[in-house]
Write a protein that binds this DNA or RNA. Structure first.
Length: 163
DNA sequence: ACCCTAACCTAATCAACGA
DNA sequence: TCGTTGATTAGGTTAGGGT
């Protein structure tokens, strides 16, 4: 517990505890990454279930690995990698953008809670985010994304209206 | 002290949904 | 169709844990 809120100093960034992947988990992740560094939501969720890890940790892991390992820019077209038989699913194995997570729709009361919290502190630590998530009944990862988007768009508005 | 990398960030962009 | 906004990305920074 080192997440005390100083009233006047704003950002006491309290991170979630660092995940320690087991060797088995890492093996599964790396193999999945080699097959497809841009997995859709379904794949990430399946991996999460398979290795008993939050899906958001899987997402972060893929983001970090893509950044560190120079991944092929656009594997859009594959010429001749047909081995023998792999036409079980026509367009279902390497979906990258098709399988997005379903868009979350917030109710007005959920948004009110989020907006109030944002006004209070636009950089909530993990504990605040989890409490918020629990309050409005949405995964913590969605709360984090909401704050990221909100902060970015506040900046955009400030630039557009420097008056 | 240094290294590796999970966690976190911004900015840009993709895309779902409603007016 | 178009604006709003959630989801994803590239790419960079911060910090935890091992050597």
């Amino acid at each position: 517990m080192a997440c005390l809120m100083e009233p006047h100093s704003v950002a006491v960034h309290c991170r979630r505890s660092r995940t320690k992947f087991t060797e088995d988990q890492l093996k599964v992740l790396i193999q999945a990454f080699d097959q497809n560094p841009y997995p859709g939501y379904a794949i990430k969720q399946k991996l999460a279930l398979e290795m008993n890890i939050e899906e958001s940790r899987i997402q972060i892991w893929f983001q970090n690995r893509r950044a560190r390992h120079q991944v092929q820019k656009r594997p859009e077209h594959e010429e001749d990698l047909e081995a023998s038989q792999d036409k079980d699913q026509p367009v279902e194995k390497t979906q990258s953008k098709e399988g997005r997570r379903c868009r979350t729709s917030y109710t007005s009361s959920q948004l009110h809670t989020l907006n109030t919290a944002f006004a209070n502190n636009p950089y909530p630590g993990i504990e605040s985010r989890e409490q918020l998530a629990k309050d409005i009944g949405v995964p913590e990862s969605r709360v984090q994304i909401w704050f990221q988007n909100r902060r970015s768009r506040v900046q955009v508005q400030v630039k557009k209206e420097p008056d």
